Amino acid sequence: MPRSIWKGAISFGLVTIPVKLFSATEEKDVSFRQVHPEDGGRIKYKRVCEKCGKEIPFAEIAKGYELPDGRVVILDAEDMASLPLPTMKQVEVVQFVAEDDIDPTYFAKTYFLEAEGPGVKPYVLLRDALLKTNRCALVKVAIRSREALALVRPKGGILLMHTMLWPDELRDGGFVAPPSDITVSDGEIAMAQNFIDALAGDFDPGAYADSYREAVETLVESKLEGAELPAEEEEPQEAEVVDLVAALRASVEAAKKRRADAEQQTDSTAGKAV
Rank of each mutant, 00 (worst) to 15 (best):
V184R: 11
L224R: 10
D204F: 02
H162R: 09
D243P: 05
E240Q: 04
D204A: 15
D243Q: 12
R171P: 01
D197Y: 02
M161N: 00
E234H: 07
Y208W: 10
A200V: 03
E188I: 05
E235L: 09
G206Q: 09
D204R: 11
E214I: 05
E232K: 12
T218Y: 02
A190N: 13
Y212G: 05
S180N: 15
S211Q: 11
D181Q: 09
R171T: 08
L229T: 09
S211Y: 01
S185L: 05
D197A: 13
Q237W: 03
E169M: 11
V176C: 13
L160M: 08
M161C: 07
I189N: 05
V241Q: 08
P205G: 07
A192G: 13
I189F: 10
A231V: 12
I196S: 03
A215V: 04
V220T: 08
D197G: 03
I189Y: 04
E221I: 01
G173V: 04
I158K: 06
T218M: 11
A198P: 02
V176L: 15
M191S: 05
E233N: 11
D172I: 02
D168E: 13
R213P: 00
V242L: 07
V242C: 03
D202C: 01
D172L: 02
R171H: 12
D172N: 13
A227E: 12
I158G: 03
M161Y: 00
K223C: 04
I196T: 06
E221R: 12
F195N: 00
A239Q: 10
A190L: 13
D181K: 06
V176W: 07
A207C: 11
D210I: 06
L219Q: 07
A190I: 06
P178H: 13
D202T: 09
S185V: 04
V242N: 05
D186S: 07
D168M: 08
W166R: 08
R213C: 05
A209V: 14
M161Q: 01
A231K: 15
A207E: 13
V176S: 14
L229A: 12
G201R: 05
V242P: 00
P236G: 06
G226S: 09
M161S: 01
P205W: 02
G174C: 07
L199D: 02
I189K: 15
T218Q: 14
W166G: 03
G201V: 03
A215Q: 07
G174R: 12
V216T: 07
L160P: 00
L199N: 15
I158N: 04
V241E: 07
V220L: 11
D243H: 10
R171Y: 02
L224S: 08
L229Y: 05
V241W: 04
L160G: 03
V241N: 04
V241S: 05
G226K: 04
V242M: 06
D181R: 12
D172H: 02
D197F: 02
D186P: 01
T163F: 00
G187D: 09
E221F: 00
P236C: 03
L199E: 06
D202P: 00
E233T: 13
G174H: 05
S180W: 06
E228L: 07
E235Q: 08
D204Q: 15
E169Q: 15
E188L: 09
P167N: 14
I189C: 05
S180G: 14
G226M: 04
E188S: 07
L165W: 12
F195A: 10
R213Q: 09
